[in-house]
Simulated scan of single mutants.
Amino acid sequence: MLKLELRAASSRSMAYLSPVLALLLTIFFGALLFMALGKNPWTGLQVFLIEPIRNKAAIAELLLKTTPLVLCALGLSVCYRANVWNIGAEGQLIAGGLAAGSTILFFDTGTPGLSGGMVLLLATCAGVVGGSLWASITALLRDRFNANEILVSLMLTYIAQLLLMYAVNGPLKDPHGMNFPQSKVFSSDYLLPHLFSGSRLHIGFIVMLLASGLMAVYVYRSFAGYRLTVGGLAPLAARYAGFSSRRALWTSLLISGGFAGMAGAFEVAGPIGQVLPSISPGYGFAAIIVAFIGRLNPIGTIFGGLVLSLFYLGGEMAQSRLGLPSAITGLFQGMLLFLLLACDTLINYRLRWQK
């Protein structure tokens, strides 16, 4: 009698090919999706994938959106390597953006004070601290009460959103803003400098690249990174070696929250230029996909960030050019994640008929 059996058949090279295969399949099913919506599939794919990178200005926008995605994914990769399932990078980004925006508004009084560069440095540090503190709530509840970090970090995201709404409707509200829920626009001295004239790409992109390199060294060339990885892959072996699971929990969540908070600070002091009710269109959630596309590798997350930022821009193009709903971006993101998981399963396990 024949039966279907799963046998392990994984390899490092095939594991890194999985995201590429998943992306190609996403493009194929995306073409079918455009056909189902009554659109020319070639035109749809051209608008979704080619138009966002048609010139230098468009590529600069692509890199601008890549920056917060990669920063959030860097921290999430550390968490997932340590087997700590942080789902709340979005809330940590909001907390960091709120802290950074409050810092800029404190100094942006119109009277001479600290230089713009010093204020931006303080705002970035405030964003990192704000994101880390928000993530520390998850670490504390998991450490002291064994609360599930998935639920806690996710619920804290909604609390962060409500806190942001309170801030822009209360203490940070612009008194001359015609009663709109937003802070005043920051002075140009307190905005991140642009890398190129005529584009919104700012110096945060360079910081993101440097952070990716430093995290690669931390993960692959430091004892602390090795300790985190062992704790995630083999908890019993880590305990036998004397590695503290408690330290891994706190370290990974604080790093993750810090990077997400930095992303929030860069958004507030960068393309937004003020504190709004919505700091992020979902970068913290999309960064989960970015981390797994990059195989939890700090350098690989750059590739994942480029793909997801392309989806964001492609979704905006599809709305304006093809009249499609905004949900098209989420559909492509969901397809990519589902197909990535499917490709991982088929690569790690192969089907075999056995008597």
Rank of each mutant, 00 (worst) to 15 (best):
A291P: 01
V230S: 01
Q182N: 05
R12Y: 03
V20R: 02
G315L: 11
I279T: 04
I272Y: 10
I255N: 05
G204A: 12
I50D: 01
A238E: 10
V307H: 09
N148F: 01
A265L: 09
W250Q: 06
S278D: 15
P325E: 00
G264T: 08
P112L: 04
Y283N: 02
G304C: 05
P281G: 06
F259Y: 14
G264N: 07
L192H: 05
A147E: 06
G330R: 09
A211F: 15
A95C: 09
F332M: 10
L24R: 01
L296S: 03
H176R: 14
L336F: 07
L324V: 09
A327I: 08
Q46Y: 15
Q333D: 07
L33H: 06
Y240R: 15
L141Y: 08
Q161L: 14
M215S: 08
L253Q: 06
I272S: 13
K3V: 13
G231W: 02
Y220N: 10
T103R: 08
F338Q: 01
N169W: 07
A15M: 09
F180K: 06
V230W: 04
P112G: 04
V185N: 10
E267K: 11
L228I: 12
I53Q: 08
C79R: 04
S102K: 11
T345F: 11
D108C: 07
L306Y: 12
L249N: 06
V47E: 08
L351C: 00
S199W: 11
I150D: 00
L210Y: 02
V290T: 13
E51Y: 14
F34N: 03
M335N: 07
Y218L: 15
A342I: 10
R227T: 10
A291R: 04
D344G: 05
G213Q: 03
V152L: 06
P175G: 01
G97K: 08
L2Y: 13
F28Q: 03
A286K: 13
L2F: 15
L33M: 14
L122P: 01
G30S: 03
S326F: 14
A291I: 05
S326C: 00
